[in-house]
Simulated assay, not measured.
Amino acid sequence: MKNALLLAAPSVGVSDRLGKISLFYHREAQRCANNRAYFAACILTGAALEALLLSMCYVEDRAVRRTPTYKQKRFRSRRNRFFEFNLYQLISIAGELKWIPAKEIPLNGRKITLQELLHAARDTRNTIHPAVWAKEGGPSGTRKSTCEFIFEVFEVTREWLFHHMHTSLRRTMSDLR
């Protein structure tokens, strides 16, 4: 039992650091939004989301290794493979492992899933790359409403991830009895 805890320690440390990074990014994003720097707030919130999903990969590492996304990925290194995932792949893993609900929700007259909302937030985050701007015809201002949308997607995702961890922990505790 002691050896199992020792083996789990490194990934727990990485997960904790990623959680702290996510919290830092989210706080910085709120400061940016409060100062009407909505583009920066959107980018930072996307980074917070990525750190949160990466953290979950370390918490649920065995399950992640069984996903189609993990199995199809060509890794460059043997250590810290989860760091090689991009945000698109992390969102896919979250959907595959049901960390987020697959249920459609009504939004502006159409039905959409949280996974689709995450991809919309990812698309906004990806505007940090000059090539994305160049393909779309150049930069345009990021509105407060876009920033609020991305904040809401982040908050809903965070709540679902916490719900998943709580449920998983409760299930594990009842199995130990």
Rank of each mutant, 00 (worst) to 15 (best):
K98Q: 07
P101F: 14
I112M: 03
S92L: 14
P130A: 13
W133G: 00
A63L: 14
W99V: 02
C147F: 01
K111Q: 12
R110Y: 04
D123W: 04
G137K: 08
D123F: 09
F75M: 12
L97I: 06
I112P: 00
D61Y: 07
I105H: 04
M56A: 05
N108H: 10
T127M: 03
F82L: 14
T67D: 07
S145Y: 06
L97H: 06
V64R: 13
R74P: 00
H119Q: 09
F82Y: 15
F75C: 04
N80E: 12
N108W: 09
H119W: 08
F75E: 11
F83Y: 14
H129E: 07
R66S: 11
K144I: 03
A121K: 06
A63N: 13
S55R: 11
A121E: 03
D61W: 09
R65C: 09
R62C: 00
K111W: 05
S145I: 10
H129D: 06
G141E: 15
Y88A: 11
R125T: 07
L90F: 08
E96I: 11
L87F: 12
C57N: 13
E96C: 10
L87Y: 12
K144P: 01
N80G: 14
T113Y: 05
S55W: 01
K103T: 03
K144E: 14
K73R: 12
R78I: 12
L114H: 01
E60V: 00
L87M: 15
Q72H: 14
V59D: 04
L107P: 00
T113P: 01
L97P: 02
E84Y: 10
K73V: 05
H129W: 00
W133F: 00
V64E: 08
S77W: 04
S92D: 15
S55L: 00
P106S: 13
C57I: 12
L117T: 00
L117S: 02
E104Q: 11
L107K: 08
R125A: 05
L114W: 02
R143V: 03
S140M: 02
I93D: 09
K98F: 00
Y88R: 13
G138F: 06
H129R: 05
V64S: 08
K73D: 04
